[in-house]
Design a protein around this nucleic acid. Structure first.
Lengths: 314, 314
DNA sequence: GAGTCTCCATAAATTTAAATTATTCAAATT
DNA sequence: AATTTGAATAATTTAAATTTATGGAGACTC
């Protein structure tokens, strides 16, 4: 590691003298006294073993070595200015990158709207959305690869303590039927009716599937008795299957807004059952919170948060 | 003039930590204690209002802002290193420019040899030769456009005090005749013989001409009685004129070495007259002496200096 | 050319900043 | 749980830069 033979202050002084042609004027410009300028230049000359200025006449003139040094000096100081500006931009959300994590559902149906809003407000901050499983998302937040994330499932126990988990919204998992299904006419269903249905579900590894299974089980249903027509690994595929009359499914309401409006899919009401899950915001409190992340959490997320979420209260 | 929000030392520390992944290791690398490193980074973070490192686990990790700053940091430090190297090269005569002044005669016949020698020793120093009148050369040395010069005439009075003038060599101004001239056969001439000659001279403005006129006058000759066939402004032209039998001339011996060796010109001896002038080295003591200039004066010039010159004694 | 003005250098004193030692705190490893 | 390692903090020491005050040298004035 080489020693540094000069300081930025010395370079700043050098530049000022070169520009003003005088030690005194440079001192005035920099709001210091003239001896301060003299001594710093003397130090610089001693360190580099060169003469930088000819102090002959009324004005200070650069020597050859001085001109050479000045060239580098200007380049270095420009880089410094640039660095400052870049950092400032980052602070003012005029640059930088925000990395957001999400599960399949929120990533597909919720995040795009939020990110749109954010980008509208801060067009110079680039946003990266990473859609992964709850588990992987959790770990990414833990090791800093993701700034913040919204998940709908349960975190592994060890992460639960490490991360900050804030209830964010309630996501209803609606029972949806093909519009032409016989039960679509009934105003209300009962739990028991579920045994009459053929289900098209997410594959058993998915978080959403696990959540649904657990809720049904907790409400006293025997999930073994439910008939599963097929397992798919994409919500869109399931929606298509339901619309094609292949069976029923529990799907997040956020994912079927369009289809409900168009009437291509039917949402059933179950009188004695509510299938809901908590969407949670997770962040890593032991890590650096970027300005962008802070801003997203404070001003974007609340607009989409449910009334009960702590985020609302901010 | 903007304030500088960081120092080079801080950047150096930042770089070291980023490279080592640890405050402590960086401290060891830089031969300082760990608190010194911690405090400087804290200052940096405070100044820029950013967090640079995540000090979570066992190793320090850069934040986004930290990575951004590091990029600039490396560029800035590289520029600093380059600057040092450039300055060092200049000090070691591996770069830079030496500007030498000379009059017509020395510039044409003496300097090329000296510069050749210098360039052989320091091929990376570029040398510029400026041939001008004694007067203009003197002024150029005075205001720093020329590092050093060799002149054969008299400096204007005001410059005489301002510059350092060192006798350098004696330049004999030989009387030369066409080889087939009748007087070329005589072993020795006398002053009186000069009245019998037709002269081809430099124009009356030239320094060399003035010097010759003065010397002849001082030795008791009536220069009005000398027959001047023609006045030319180039030594080469005069040499050609003499060789063509058009007349005699007083020429610096250094300018006719080749012609004497070839026998195309004849050098006459005058028993009771010596026409000699002092060549002088001039420098500006109130100005910065470049390493190259110093070196030229100390090690190149003496090889061509006459025995009496103070330069010999160095 | 003597006097005045400017500008830079120098010296001593003050102020400011940075480094060190010693200690505490927290996380990670055993 | 105990030990180790790395970073933060506090107090002291050390070093460095700035200021005030002063002296000197060249340039402009009259």
């Amino acid at each position: 590691m080489p020693e540094l033979p000069f300081t930025l202050d010395q370079l700043r002084i050098l530049k000022a003298i070169a520009a003003q042609g005088s030690f005194k004027k440079a001192a005035d410009l920099l709001y210091v006294t003239q001896p301060a300028v003299s001594l710093q230049i003397q130090n610089l000359e001693k360190q580099l073993e060169i003469t930088i200025f000819d102090r002959g006449g009324r004005k200070a003139l650069l020597t050859e070595a001085g001109r050479l040094l000045l060239e580098y000096c200007e380049r270095i100081l420009n880089q410094c200015d640039e660095a400052c500006k870049a950092i400032e931009d980052l602070n003012n959300l005029k640059g930088g990158t925000l990395v957001i994590g999400a599960s399949q559902t929120t990533g597909t149906y919720l995040m795009p709207r939020m990110i749109g809003l954010f980008r509208q407000k801060y067009p110079e901050v680039s946003v990266q959305l990473q859609v992964h499983s709850t588990r992987r998302t959790g770990w990414s937040v833990a090791n800093g690869q993701i700034d913040l994330a919204i998940i709908g499932g349960q975190l592994p126990g060890d992460l639960e303590n490490l991360l900050q988990v804030i209830p964010y919204a309630t996501d209803e998992l609606a029972l949806v039927l093909p519009s032409k299904h016989q039960l679509s006419n009934k105003k209300e269903l009962l739990k028991e009716d579920l045994y009459k249905l053929n289900f098209v579900t997410l594959d058993s590894q998915s978080t959403t599937r696990k959540v649904v299974d657990k809720l049904l089980k907790d409400s006293g249903l025997d999930i073994q008795r439910l008939k599963i027509e097929m397992e798919l690994n994409s919500l869109e595929a399931i929606k298509n299957a339901v619309q094609s009359g292949l069976g029923a499914s529990f799907l997040p309401v956020v994912s079927i807004e369009r289809e409900l409006a168009a009437g291509t899919i039917h949402k059933a009401f179950i009188a004695d059952l509510e299938v809901k899950r908590e969407l949670k915001l997770i962040t890593n409190p032991s890590r650096y919170i970027s300005r962008a992340s802070e801003e997203f959490k404070k001003n974007i997320l609340p607009q989409f948060a449910s009334l009960e979420s702590p985020l609302r209260k901010i």
